[in-house]
Design a protein around this nucleic acid. Structure first.
Length: 827
DNA sequence: TTTTAATGTGTTTTT
DNA sequence: CACATTAAAA
């Protein structure tokens, strides 16, 4: 019965696809496989086939059979508000995904009426995958994503209602600071008086608490500094609207404003999203909270999941009270507590419980497990960060050799991203594959942003921010003064800077540089011209090559001895572009709009384009929200390195927690405030509970961080764990007492001899010629050997400025490398 | 006016 | 240490 119902549901919902299918039939080519873009055929296949024993075939009731009593209650709860307080490792994600699957299978809830929101891209991807595993392809109709991505999508639809147009740009923090600086310049506020970065922080904080520039000004009341900030805030806000730009905070803020001021829009989404789920609810801030409350106001079918002990985003305006007050927001709501932990050993759980018990502001609860006691927590006291790194590399290697863990079962977690460096080099040296998550986000890298700026300017010549970024990249002898002049003229005439550039010859102020400016205009025109002749991926590659960025990077590398291969990053961008194209390109009749915006809002989920320029537009819309694609990594066996923040929601067989020292963790910025300290403690709680079987805690006596050697005490949090749970290695040291006055030891020898020596060393090392194949020796198809990756086969050789970019296949792992620095040898 | 070299500065965590 | 801003040189 359930099957029949869901089949009907599918057919009704997908009936419009028949048109596409019939059209395709006309061009049907026997030799190729059937095109099945919607997955409709595949789905029919899986529904009707009894032989398919995949999880997608689970009946609604068999879903429940796998759950404990509390989980069952949560999953089968359909209507009305529901609060799930889920401790770490209590099967939270499982409950969410199963609940969605159950709603669809048991109650025939339309997937397009379900809204499932998480905080990070990683969590969203994970959720999508797991739901797909349960219900099959229908999962794609669920509105599942991060707050930012979903809200941005809705905002585009109704942009005009809040004074924007639908192609608004989303800018990251860097561009945000740039705009703030511009605003300050216009207001004649010197950067010596007010730091742009702290203004950025203030503004962000205002938006997170929904304080308007006017309100901020009133609050400032006479305070000279804050009045200046208020002015900048106001100017900055105007700038955003004028230039059709939103920053990250705006996406959340504008969403709640949109819903608040437009009853008809609210009404529409009230009806559309009949069921709303929010994961990590303890991390919501005010705008998010307001938006969610409005969205849920009609049906009140809202289910929030969270854990007050895992609230670690208060710096972003997250407010634990949101989850603590849920019962007040929805009197009589159902509350379910999940306290049974299925993840960690007793030892790990006890340690976590002991640590978090020291926090005063929390709902008291204790995780329990019926699992094994497990190994003690290994506490390693290393001499310095190098010793720390080698300890980890050796331990991982040993565990791998003994078959205890695979590489992908191991994670190295840290409080600050900067700690990853030394571990990276140790892992590299030992030949252990790894991947660093977070830190400098892929899309934040200079070279990536430069290319993106080219694409943005090609896509929209009015994008002044992009214009300013690349007008002199690579160097074209166009300096600040010239840019300043162009900007003034542009403001004066209310035209784009690129337009002014095009007419450079007609402005006397620009006559001297007009040749250079025109060269730039020609370049952009030249780049723009062949867009429709190429696939999206190839077009991006074309821009990378023709813009001269690659040449410049190579030139710089030669001079400075660049360690990071920026060219590799650019090639990685092509992979992303190809992936994007795969998901968003669709063949269409020529007379249709390049970008398909249907009136059916369900289709917004997967917007498509038929032309390359259309794809480019789509791609750029959300570029600021993208993270490095980590979905297809699952099969590979490698160690993961990430901050504790980004590890939330994940679990690993074996966790190495590094830098567990006072002033690193807890951070020196937190140790003065009791409240911040509690957040650090929650962070420690999150870190500990990531581990399933083994936890290694590593601290060092001396650490080189931010260019200075620090001598820190072991973290106070280690004192909170019963010593009986610990196995200590290395030199014995007492953890810091909570009330110890902590003096962050800073060596004030800024220009020490050591510094001078080491920098001299580096230059010398880079001069050393790399032995290995040269560009004229290497050919595609050749077998080569690499120090780290071993034997591989050359797939492609591409000459670039005296060097060559080679693509090598190392046993299924493809790597792009610059030949002169790769040190490849012929086999 | 732009490029280069020297000096200064800050450096949590994420979308 | 990495990066950004500032001062001197081209």
């Amino acid at each position: 019965m359930g099957h029949i119902k869901s089949v009907l549901g599918v057919i009704i919902e997908r009936s419009y696809f028949y048109g596409v299918i019939i059209l395709d039939y006309d061009n049907y080519d026997e030799s190729s496989s059937i095109t099945d873009p919607s997955g409709f055929f595949a789905e029919l296949e899986s529904i009707y086939s009894d032989t398919n024993s995949g999880e997608a075939d689970k009946s609604a009731d068999s879903l429940l059979a796998e759950l404990n009593a509390e989980q069952k209650a949560a999953v089968s709860h359909l209507d009305g508000p529901l609060l799930i307080l889920a401790g770490a490792g209590s099967g939270k994600t499982r409950v969410i995904t199963y609940r969605i699957a159950y709603m669809m299978k048991k109650h025939s809830v339309q997937p397009s009426s379900i809204l499932a929101i998480t905080f990070t891209n990683k969590a969203a991807n994970e959720m999508k995958e797991r739901i797909t595993a349960l219900v099959g392809d229908r999962a794609r109709y669920i509105w599942c994503g991060t707050f930012h991505s979903i809200f941005a999508r809705i905002l585009r639809r109704h942009a005009e209602l809040i004074g924007y147009s639908d192609n608004f740009t989303i800018v990251d923090t860097d561009d945000q600071v740039k705009l703030i600086k511009d605003s300050m310049k216009e207001l004649d506020i010197p950067e010596s008086k007010v730091k742009p970065k702290s203004v950025q922080y203030e503004i962000s904080s205002c938006k997170n608490h929904m304080i308007s520039p006017e309100e901020f000004k009133e609050d400032a009341a006479g305070d000279v500094y804050r009045l200046m900030v208020a002015k900048i805030y106001k100017r900055y806000s105007e700038k955003l609207v004028q230039n059709n730009i939103m920053d990250f905070d705006d996406i959340l803020l504008n969403m709640s404003i949109l819903l608040e001021n437009n009853p008809d829009v609210l009404d529409f989404y009230n009806d559309k999203f009949k069921y709303i789920m929010v994961d990590e609810y303890q991390d919501t801030n005010l705008p998010q909270y307001r938006a969610i409350m409005l969205l849920a106001s009609k049906h009140k079918n809202i289910c929030v999941v969270g854990d007050d002990d895992q609230s670690i985003y208060s710096f972003r305006g997250a407010d634990v009270r949101m989850i603590l007050n849920f019962e007040k927001d929805f009197p009589g709501c159902k509350v379910i507590k999940l306290e049974e932990n299925y993840r960690s050993t007793k030892t790990i759980l006890e340690a976590a419980n002991e640590v978090i018990a020291n926090n005063t502001k929390r709902k008291s609860k204790a995780l329990r497990t019926s699992g094994a006691q497990g190994d003690k927590i290994i506490v390693m006291n290393a001499d310095d960060q190098v010793g720390e790194a080698y300890f980890i590399a050796n331990t991982i290697k040993t565990m791998k050799q003994k078959g205890k863990f695979g590489y992908s079962d191991c994670a190295i977690l840290y409080r600050v991203n900067a700690l990853s460096r030394s571990v990276e080099s140790a892992l590299r040296e030992k030949g252990i594959p790894f991947k660093v998550y977070g830190g400098l986000r892929f899309y934040d890298r200079k070279e990536i942003k430069d290319i993106l700026a080219y694409l943005r300017l090609i896509n929209d010549s009015k994008d002044n921010l992009a214009f300013e970024r690349i007008i002199n990249v690579p160097k074209r002898s166009i300096g600040d003064t010239t840019v300043e002049k162009i900007r003034e003229i542009a403001i004066e005439e209310n035209r784009s800077m690129f337009d002014i550039c095009r007419d450079a010859a007609s402005y006397s102020e620009l006559s001297r540089v007009s040749a250079k400016l025109l060269y730039f205009v020609d370049l952009i025109d030249k780049l723009r011209a062949p867009i429709e002749e190429k696939s999206f991926r190839d077009y991006v590659e074309y821009v990378e090559n023709e813009s001269g960025i690659i040449e410049e990077i190579i030139a710089q590398r030669e001079k400075k001895g660049e360690v990071v291969d920026r060219v590799e990053n650019l090639k990685e961008l092509l992979t992303e572009a190809a992936e994007f194209e795969k998901n968003h390109r669709v063949e269409k009749d020529e007379d249709e709009l390049p970008v398909e915006i249907t009136d059916d809002l369900d289709e917004l989920e997967n917007r498509t384009a038929s032309t390359t320029s259309g794809l480019l537009t789509l791609y750029l819309e959300n570029a600021a929200l993208y993270t490095e694609g980590d979905s297809n990594d699952e099969s590979e066996d490698f160690v993961r390195l990430m901050s504790i923040h980004s590890a939330k929601g994940l679990e690993f067989g074996s966790v190495f927690l590094i830098g567990v020292e006072e002033s690193v963790f807890p951070s020196y910025r937190s140790i003065t405030s009791e409240e911040d300290l509690e957040e650090e403690r929650r962070l420690m709680y999150v870190a500990i509970t990531r581990a399933k079987k083994n936890l290694f805690v590593i601290m060092t006596r001396q650490r080189m961080l931010f260019g200075q050697t620090q001598y820190n005490m072991p973290s106070r949090f280690m004192r909170e764990i019963d010593p009986a749970l610990l196995y200590k290695m290395g030199a014995e040291r007492k953890p810091a007492k909570t009330d110890d006055a902590v003096v962050p030891m800073r060596e004030d020898a800024r220009k020490s001899i050591a510094n001078a020596l080491s920098s001299g060393f580096r230059k010398e090392a880079s001069k050393k010629p790399k032995e290995g194949l040269t560009p004229d020796q290497i050919k595609a198809g050749m077998e080569v050997k690499h120090d780290r990756f071993g034997i591989g086969k050359v797939l492609k050789v591409e000459p670039v400025g005296g060097d060559a970019l080679v693509t090598v296949d190392f046993d299924g792992m493809r790597k792009n490398m610059l030949l002169n620095s790769a040190g490849l040898k012929k086999v």
